[in-house]
Amino acid sequence: MEDSKIIELYLKRDESAIGETRNKYDNYCFAIARNILNNQQDCEETLSDTYLAAWNAIPPHHPLNLATFIGKICRRLSLNRWRHLSAEKRGGGTVTVSIDELAECIPDERSLRKNLKQELLAETIDQFLSELKTEERKVFVCRYWYFDSIEDISRRFLFSQSKTKMMLKRTRDRLKDYLIKEGVLE
């Protein structure tokens, strides 16, 4: 079923919308959740929460792109669950390493500009990404949005693992410089 029709079902409060979303995006969401949680049961629970959250969010939201909308919810919920599990010393997956790498840019929230809104930070990163080469941007998003492993990214883009690591390292360094230049970091 087309995305626009699924969204229409949500807007009409037709419960079959959840089933249709599940049919179409279950694998996609499962891949996102698995990269973060690395546990079948946790992934399945997160996926159920994702569909429920989508049901509650549409309306009032009217997503232009259902795939990224559902993906964003799934990523956020998976990360929340992962944080909860990390506090209990469970869970793991690629996310730990990816987040550590990302934290190289801003290791401490205190170094961020005071009262900096999440949206503004996202917008600055958005702007930075728009200035990257397409390939660098895709690799960055695969690693830090989808939390794909280095092996997966290398296989997908036909790079060696060392090239992928080096590309990510350079992008992170440039992101750090960019954030300083834009005054996001104090």
Binding site: Y28, L64, N65, A67, T68, F69, G71, K72, R75, R76, L79, R83, S86, T96, I99, D100, L102, A103, C105, I106, P107, D108, E109, L112, L116, Q118, E119, L121, A122, I125, D126, L129, T134, R137, K138, V141, C142, Y144, W145, Y146, R156, F157
Partner: peptide, 27 residues
């Protein structure tokens, strides 16, 4: 573990077109 939650979440909020772009590459 030295997560910067704000940064991780901000990356989660980046434009749909980039996520789609990378997603398309997955196929």
């Amino acid at each position: 573990m030295k997560e910067n939650k704000k940064l991780t979440d901000a990356v989660g909020m980046i434009a749909d077109e980039y996520i789609e772009e990378a997603h398309a590459k997955k196929k």
